[in-house]
Write a protein that binds this DNA or RNA. Structure first.
Length: 429
DNA sequence: TCTGGGGTCCTAGGACCC
DNA sequence: TCTGGGGTCCTAGGACCC
């Protein structure tokens, strides 16, 4: 039996989240900005109609935003994450076979669900999420994930469909017509590098791609990826549902500084804070890192762009914030160059093992005293922060400076994740 | 003046082994 | 000094996703 996937894709997700608590913005052009208020990361339909592209630098569109009275928000990830998990729980009621693909998209496996009219089922799901959570979604249904993506895009752009589109009931001619009108660049798996390459080979539409000789597809797109892309367009599923939460293979925390800096202590504070966040995440997953690193760079948009990769390894795998911070700061001390205008820092943790895996050094010697002390220290740190609020207790280096922190001047209240920022409702009678 | 923050997977090539 | 197939492991870089 062939597979059946549904993709539930939230429309303009970050903007839609802001509108849940600001219904007055329903018809106003609205954008959400990146953490430094530097570029546009989500746009309402009205903002899209003004020609503001995804990733648009704010300074270039300042006039357009002003002339059209566009409402702007700094990204409020606490809010978006919370609303995302509400949608996930609703979808889990429909079927446990769900893959949460990103903060605003989930795939469902519909095999064996006894659905007679898939498009109608999709419209019902859309209506329920709108009613119960307040977020508009598009539902795409197809035998492969690649086609389900395409179907959800179709549902999003053709209002007459009521928010859902299914590939399952199409005739061969209708199927081909859908692929014919889809440019290759709109396909899942075709990015800015492959698009010009395909076009210069005469492959302009999804239909062209679906009819390529396998050997040609392998050569143009890559041996594995090319073959899979063609098969998926022809209804042969290559990407199954991946329901279990796969443990991540790397943890990265990075931030563009509020302003470029050459101050050692400012960079040190940034690194300490980023490392704290990354280490916390690692402890949360009960894992230890064997290696990691620090990536520093100057601004890409200024002459003399440079970047430095400073790798670290741990003789004993660790998730101890203090150990990780001190190793990274030592690297910084050795490689910091006075006078460079540093723009951004990324902290990486890599090469994980489970916390309860036996750890030994080269001689097979386990120093349980140190391990136990570190573990208890981190436990106390996390307990205190859980009880008294995120970031209440931290390492001194994190507080050396706050000037690296990005501007978030337009952030909305964390309506659902901070007691102090709950919305107020007044009732008159 | 002002351009995000997370991630994954694949491939090619070099070093090394028998 | 050169010949040769077959294998593994590692790394850097490229490409993609949201």
């Amino acid at each position: 039996m062939s597979s059946i996937f549904a993709l539930i894709d939230c429309n303009n997700f970050f903007v839609s989240c802001e509108r849940v608590f600001r219904p007055d913005l329903e018809n106003r052009p609205t954008v959400v900005l990146s953490s430094n208020d530097g570029c546009v990361v989500a746009r309402s339909n009205q903002a899209k109609a003004l020609g503001i592209p995804m990733g648009a630098p704010v300074f270039k569109y300042r006039q357009v935003l002003k002339d059209n009275d566009v409402v702007q928000f700094s990204a409020n990830f606490e809010l978006y994450g919370d609303i995302s998990s509400r949608i996930t729980s609703l979808l889990t009621e429909l079927t446990p076979r769900i893959e949460v693909y990103s903060v605003d998209e989930s795939f469902l496996d519909l095999q064996g669900l006894n659905i007679t009219d898939y498009a109608a089922w999709g419209r019902a799901v859309k209506d329920r999420i709108q009613r119960e959570i307040g977020i508009p979604v598009s539902v795409g249904i197809a035998p492969t994930k690649t086609l389900a993506k395409l179907a959800s895009e179709q549902a999003k752009h053709d209002e007459s469909l009521g928010g859902a589109f299914s590939f399952l009931d199409l005739s061969e001619a209708e199927h081909d017509a859908m692929l014919q009108k889809t440019p290759v660049k709109d396909l899942w798996g075709v990015g800015w590098r492959l698009n010009p390459k395909l076009k210069s080979a005469g492959v302009h539409t999804a239909l062209d791609l679906s009819r390529l000789w396998p050997a040609t597809a392998r050569q143009l797109v890559g041996s594995k990826h090319g073959a899979q892309l063609v098969a998926e367009l022809n209804g042969i599923s290559c990407h199954g549902l991946e329901p279990e939460h796969q443990p991540q293979k790397s943890i990265m925390r990075g931030r563009t500084f509020g302003e470029d800096t050459d101050q050692f202590h400012v960079i040190e504070a940034a690194i300490a804070s980023l490392a704290s966040g990354a280490a916390y995440r690692l402890r949360h997953e009960h894992r230890l890192a064997r290696s990691g690193g620090l990536l520093l760079n100057t601004s890409k948009h200024k002459p003399g762009f440079r970047s430095w990769w400073l790798p670290i390894t741990f003789d004993t795998p660790t998730n101890d914030s203090g150990i990780i911070i001190s190793r990274l700061v030592r690297e910084l001390q050795q490689h910091y160059q006075p006078g460079q205008q540093y723009h951004r820092a990324n902290v990486f943790l890599l090469d994980f093992i489970a916390e309860d895996a036996l750890q030994t050094d080269l001689l097979g010697y386990v120093d349980t005293t140190i391990d136990e002390r570190s573990r208890r220290r981190m436990q106390a740190l996390d307990d205190i922060n859980k009880r008294f609020g995120k970031g209440r207790l931290g390492y001194a280096a994190e507080r050396f400076s706050a000037t690296w922190q990005p501007k978030r001047q337009l952030r909305s209240p964390r309506y659902t994740s901070q007691w102090s920022e709950l919305p107020t409702v007044r009732l008159y009678h």
